[in-house]
Design a protein around this nucleic acid. Structure first.
Length: 586
RNA sequence: GCGCCCAUAGCUCAGCUGGAUAGAGCACCCGCCUUCUAAGCGGGCGGUCAGGGGUUCGAAUCCUCUUGGGCGUGCCA
């Protein structure tokens, strides 16, 4: 409808230009908006005001020239109001046509082909596999999932990917932590390093290793501790040097093969847990991309080599630097450290190059906002690698703080003192968690109120929307109890019987759904869907309170029922996009 | 210091790419269940859109400065 009106205005302007009533060189952006106030009709355009100056006429005069040219069989009336707005009142039968559309399309209502099948990769969560996901990861997970689902709904070919940081020092610390626990189980007298990973999953893995491999990895305490610098807390101790010493010994004593078994064992345990956790959270990835695979397949070396050939790499202080300043970064960045270890950034160069090599037209990375400084250097690398940096869009998600009883829940990743995503789901439920995480604009800091998310009351916004959905189901049950049979065809044939104000409001809200999906998808803003659904639910609740649906007269009854069922379907489709269930009873 | 983000009702936040009288929810006050679920509905209270300047028919929205917060600024990931 919006586009239809825009076209009408376009052709009306053309006519006026041909008649010489408007200068030829005007090319306004035709803007048609939904009105906020019903007295302003259904749609309004500001073209007259935009054209006032170039046309050398008063806005209202321009509007009056346009008005007679805009009449249409879908428009009830056109008014000129305020400073020069042209207000369009759409005919009721046009407005109610959306009910037919919803009935026809069902769960596809709201979907479109705006993306035209373009392939998009959305990479999100990508938390280091060094432990279970915690609530901090939850927001990125929920947000990324919604962005991906929304893009899919508007016709993009979406691939969800989790980048597994399974290479590097943190993983070595993890593997060594497991080994130390394993040694403890073997009754070797070793002290667990201060910088090691705590947590049950470390013990679990070490027990599994012992069960499966016996004492294959057992070494004496003297061997394990040989030449290892003192740990923190001891005299002259340094926890970093200490753990690095242990890692070195672990690799030397166990050999590549056995060390890898432990490394892989703990990685498998953690990844399995993360996958299960996310799946229960309603999020499934098409691909889990291993950072290690980038090294093993030589892609990291190839990327560095490519930069070298282009003269974009130099050596300084024993390290290898990438001249990212040539591409707008603040300073050059190290890709290979003086100890020969490649940086995380080096694998990221290869990774982003590889993403585009795989044929994605657009790649989206969802990162924590604390990584925002990282964006320029990745884009610089993409340019240097002869790939288009504009193909990458980085979406930043601010942290969420948990509040319980009005108090901020203190969290630190140190020594397992954090609330896990699983605990959160168990405490507030998946629906509330998904909903709360995307309720706020992603780049906004947010306070996650546990008590509110948990509360089974009117204070909880999730229930408000779910309740509206359930209510319609309750009405349909009631219908059967009263001995009526729902007749959809009769309802659709009698939509003109729906003349109440509440019915107009409801149907108008429903008509906004497709554009809301499109808006939320294109702008990567799932919170728009949250706000929309609240509005739709409100329209339904108000209608419910004002009018009985199950009336004696069959035509009116079925017309009302088909309307509320369409509203229910719309609520369901919207909730689905947020990963929230649509219950039939509560 | 430099860079990025943010500031709207008592609280938590919307405000679509510049539009008409700045909106919700919660909290608070007043009403509505013999009628389809009251996890609901209706009404009320509540604002110098952080502050100054600018752009124009029109600014919460765009530009600029100030103030006040958050984050980043590693041969960490």
């Amino acid at each position: 409808m919006k586009q239809h009106i825009a076209h009408r205005i376009q052709s009306a302007l053309q006519t006026l230009i041909e008649q010489g009533q408007l200068p030829e060189d005007i090319a306004p952006r035709i803007q048609v908006d939904r009105t906020k106030d019903k007295s302003h009709g259904d749609f309004a355009s500001n073209v007259a005001m935009m054209l006032a100056k170039p046309a050398g006429k008063a806005p209202r005069a321009v509007a009056e020239m346009l008005q007679p040219l805009l009449t249409d069989d879908q428009i009830e009336k056109i008014e000129i109001a305020g400073p020069g707005f042209i207000n369009f009142f759409v005919k009721a039968e046009e407005k109610f046509a959306v009910v037919n559309e919803v009935v026809e399309k069902g769960e596809d209502f709201g979907r479109s082909n705006a993306g035209q099948g373009a392939s998009v990769q959305v990479e999100f969560v990508s938390a280091n596999p060094t432990g279970p996901l915690h609530v901090g990861h939850g927001r990125g997970a929920a947000y990324g999932a919604c962005v991906a689902d929304l893009l899919e709904a508007v016709g993009y070919d979406v691939a969800r990917e989790y980048y597994v940081n399974d290479a590097g020092r943190q993983m070595d610390i993890l593997a060594t932590s497991v080994w130390m626990r394993y040694l403890d189980l073997c009754e070797v007298a070793v002290t667990f390093p201060k910088n090691g990973y705590q947590g049950d999953y470390i013990w679990t893995t070490s027990r599994e290793l012992l069960a499966e491999h016996g004492e294959q990895f057992k070494r004496s305490a003297d061997e394990v501790m040989a030449n290892v610098p003192a740990d923190e807390g001891e005299e002259g101790g340094d926890k970093e040097a200490h753990i690095d010493g242990l890692i070195e010994n672990a690799k030397a004593l166990l050999g590549e093969t056995d060390y890898r078994i432990i490394h892989k064992a703990v990685l498998d345990v953690i990844l399995t847990d993360i996958k299960e956790d996310l799946s229960e959270f309603g999020i499934d990835f098409q691909n889990w991309f291993s950072e290690r695979s980038l090294f093993e397949s030589g892609l990291v070396d190839a990327a560095i080599e490519k930069l070298q050939q282009k003269g974009l790499v130099y050596e300084k202080g024993g390290a290898l630097w990438f001249k990212s300043t040539d591409f707008g970064d603040e300073k050059d960045r190290v890709v290979v450290r003086d100890n020969g270890i490649k940086t995380y950034f080096a694998s990221d160069i290869a990774y982003h190059f590889n993403k585009l090599e795989r044929g994605f037209e657009k790649i989206i990375d969802v990162w924590g906002a604390d990584h925002h400084g990282y964006v320029p250097r990745v884009k610089a690398a993409m340019t240097a690698m002869d790939t288009n940096p504009d193909a990458l869009e980085v979406l930043l998600v601010q942290f969420a703080s948990l509040f319980r009883g009005g108090e901020k829940v203190a969290m630190s990743t140190r020594s397992g003192q954090f609330v896990t995503l699983r605990e959160l789901r168990e405490e507030v439920g998946t629906d509330a968690a998904r909903f709360f995480y995307v309720m706020r604009k992603s780049e906004q800091h947010m306070d996650f109120d546990l008590d509110l998310a948990k509360s089974q009351s009117n204070e909880n916004p999730v229930y408000y929307i779910q309740y509206a959905h359930a209510r319609v189901s309750a009405v349909m049950n009631q219908l059967v109890d009263k001995g009526f049979i729902y007749d959809e065809a009769m309802g659709l044939a009698n939509l003109e019987r729906l003349t109440e104000e509440h019915e107009d409001t409801l149907v108008t809200a429903m008509a906004k759904f497709p554009e809301t999906v499109n808006n939320a998808a294109m702008n990567h803003e799932p919170h728009l869907m949250v706000h929309y659904l609240r509005e739709l639910a409100h329209a339904l609740h108000s209608y419910y309170n004002a009018h009985a649906f199950i009336v004696d007269e069959a035509e009116l009854r079925n017309a009302r029922l088909v309307l509320v069922k369409a509203a229910q379907q719309t609520l369901k489709n919207g909730l689905k996009l947020l990963g929230v269930s649509a219950p039939d009873s509560m």
